[in-house]
Design a binder for these strands. Structure first.
Lengths: 352, 352
DNA sequence: CTTAGCACTCAATGAAAAGGAGTGCTAAGT
DNA sequence: ACTTAGCACTCCTTTTCATTGAGTGCTAAG
């Protein structure tokens, strides 16, 4: 019943037509008909011939027709072939890279703000949503620890890690510690563990605890009991990301259904699914794409996600990316995501 | 041409009917016709009589008809009268208050998290958007200051204020300071200014600077030059708020236009207008409402804002509230906002 | 293999008709 | 003097139906 297949399963011409079709569809957002495609392709083919080719492409699953008398639009599989084989990605030209670097390095900031800036940059440039996971290092060097007594056996702990990140938390202790006691404990910890990996510190202290406490002098007793509280929260493994430009997604025709949009935004707030998806990209060694349903999450069915891991000193510590409608200008987005990931890594590195 | 006005400008019966109308409109969201209203009012009036009353109410500007053959819906003026005179607000019953308190006091947290929890609470309970401005105290007591040298003449400053808030910033100095120098400076500042108001410290230091530097010894020179950098950022006056439950707003029929919604969300991101509006509420001494256009911001035309200031030790330090469609259950929302403001104030207070 | 021709499909647009909820007005009832 | 039944009228909503036009698939000829 179907017309006889071309000699090669997918010849040059068909690929070219598919590329032109997707190009046009990405620009215009409307199903592309045979007449238009014939004209656009500059191949001097009649619409009828194009129709035959389209029929083949449809059978192969690369394009689909919304209804009988509409043109064709790419399927996920079509986009996949497009980005994998038909698209020649130009790295961002150096002027643009420099401009990106400027914006990212603009102010003297901590890594938290840097992440935010990166996310904003991504969303501003692409006019879609930007996402950057918080960096998460394997090795967390303790630089300094300080205590301040609060009321009711509570202690404010100030932790400086990785040279310049400041964390603070409040711990509840079994007994009251005086300011000078706390100072002694802090001095001890700083003297013994400054520069050490925080996980190492933790396991070391757990080992201490295993010993019968009889052996210890008062100082050590205090140190262990306080430090245990401090570092026990360390494994909380709270991943998180910074999202920017959600509102950009609201202007796309294909995402204009309020209910769908609500579900998408709720997935963003819930974070779990998106994080899970981003985690998958952390091991890819470059730009990675999820097109439409490829993500496996229904809320993202109409969306594509372009990601790249970023790293400091060779260690991948996070992922960033862009979320937009499946119909996005991949050739423009991919280099941007790629460059931003490199620049963010560099920026985080230089600030140590 | 219009029927003769009732003896009183707005009699008991008209008020009752207006209340019933708004009650019903808030519940159902559809224009209310005379038949329905006659039935609902339990006044044993015929639809025709009700129509006459509605005609009067319309002339007075309290209700409006979307079109000739629709029922009536409240105008902003109608809502205003409703909340000001027709609504008897019951304070939240003590069980609910207790429940709120539980949720707010659930964990041992810093004020930042507390604000977030409050915002989430507001949005969860009301199924609308919750907003809480960051607290901003007139008096900020310096508890402790610490310095850590970074590379390239940069210094990491850790500031503990108001007993338990931790701030950190990075300053760039003209020359390199050694760790021990920094320690000396910190000791000096801590010894002289701990417990003092941070603005007082700042003006004091500016005064010092006015003197010719000849008079100073080296220590003072260093102290002044570093402290100046630290405290100069203090007046940044950055207001901000925490918004929660934006997505809740997407399920309301009256806000279902994507473009309108986008503008609203963008106003939320821009923050300026919303902050300006919230600022107006900081001087009100209780719950304040902006209904529809009353806000003066077009993006909020379809929305109402219910706010209440929250305070610690009698000093108002912030505002919280709920944003939802004009058609909201004011009788339920107002007590919730009121109670949350009190509880947040109390929670912030107890943590000193 | 390509293409012109043609019948056919189907979304989109718009006009017309039907239905219905609710109003305003008038005149009669209390 | 207020209340109400009755009725004509308005205008939104929904449905139906015809029209249009873009685009297709198929066939037969080049």
């Amino acid at each position: 019943m179907s017309r006889q297949p071309p000699t090669e399963l997918m010849n040059e011409r068909a690929q070219h037509l598919l590329r032109v079709l997707i190009d046009r569809y990405i620009r215009e957002g409307e199903p592309v008909g045979s007449r238009t495609l014939a004209r656009d392709s500059r191949l001097d083919l009649s619409p009828a011939t194009v129709r035959n080719v389209m029929s083949d492409l449809e059978e192969m699953g690369f394009v689909a027709a919304p209804h009988t008398s509409a043109g064709r639009i790419p399927t996920v599989q079509g986009y996949r072939l497009f980005v994998d084989s038909l698209l020649n990605i130009q790295p961002l030209d150096s002027v643009q890279v420099e401009q990106l670097r400027q914006e990212l390095w603009a102010e003297e900031t901590d890594s938290g703000r840097l992440i935010e800036t990166a996310s904003n940059l991504l969303s501003d440039i692409t006019r879609m949503a930007g996402v950057v996971t918080l960096p998460r290092r394997e090795h967390v060097a303790l630089r300094r620890i300080d205590f301040l007594p609060l009321s009711q056996n509570r202690i404010l702990v100030i932790l400086v890690i990785n040279e310049k990140e400041v964390q603070n938390r409040i711990i509840q202790t079994d007994r009251t510690f005086s300011a000078s006691e706390l100072e002694t404990i802090a001095n001890f910890l700083n003297a013994h563990f400054a520069g050490k990996d925080i996980h190492a510190v933790r396991t070391h202290l757990i080992d201490e605890m295993q010993q019968t406490r009889q052996d210890m002098n008062d100082l050590m007793m205090s140190v262990v009991s306080v430090a245990e509280k401090v570092f026990s929260g360390e494994d909380s493994d709270e991943e998180d990301y910074v999202l920017a430009g959600q509102t950009n997604l609201m202007q796309f025709r294909e995402l204009s259904d309020v209910e769908k949009l609500r579900e998408l935004f709720e997935a963003f707030n819930r974070k779990r699914d998106i994080l899970h998806l981003l985690d998958k990209c952390i091991c890819a060694n470059g730009v990675q794409l999820f097109i439409g349903e490829e993500s496996g999450y229904q809320v993202l069915d109409e969306c594509s996600l372009v990601t790249a891991p970023y790293s400091v000193e060779g260690e991948v510590i996070g992922v960033l990316g862009v979320i937009g409608p499946t119909r996005m200008a991949y050739d423009r987005i991919i280099p941007i995501v790629d460059a931003t990931a490199r620049l963010l890594g560099a920026a985080l590195n230089s600030r140590n």
